[in-house]
């Protein structure tokens, strides 16, 4: 610590790049961990469900979303399918 740091005061220390590093890491690691625990079949499942729906309804590529969550004792597989507006359907 140099002479100038004494005038900047203790608040200055927390503003260092380390706090940015920590924030970025927390987000990144949470994201990595979520991806790690997800079953590897999810992307394929999403594609196949989309293909089945498309046999009957014309929907966008991003109309099917799959969310996976894990709690202590159970897992939640959430499927969300956005159908087009009624007047767009034939």
């Amino acid at each position: 610590m140099g002479l100038l740091d004494y005038f900047r005061g203790p608040g200055g220390a927390r503003k260092g790049s380390a706090s940015v590093a920590k924030e970025r890491l927390q987000i990144l690691v949470a994201h990595d961990r979520a991806a790690r625990d997800r079953p590897s079949y999810l992307p394929r499942l999403q594609q196949e469900i989309l293909a089945v729906i498309r046999k009957y309804v014309e929907v966008d590529n991003d109309a099917v979303s799959v969310h996976y969550e894990q709690e202590d004792k159970y897992e939640i597989l959430e499927l969300n399918i956005v159908l087009p507006d009624a007047d767009a359907r034939s």
């Binding site: 610590m1 740091d5 200055g12 220390a13 927390r14 503003k15 260092g16 790049s17 380390a18 706090s19 590093a21 920590k22 890491l25 927390q26 690691v29």
Partner: peptide
């Protein structure tokens, strides 16, 4: 420790928290 004190390096608690 010097760089941790000056806020330019992750401290041991930061790494432990993650």
């Amino acid at each position: 420790p010097e760089r941790v004190a000056s806020g330019e390096m992750l401290g041991v608690e930061d790494v432990q928290e993650i």
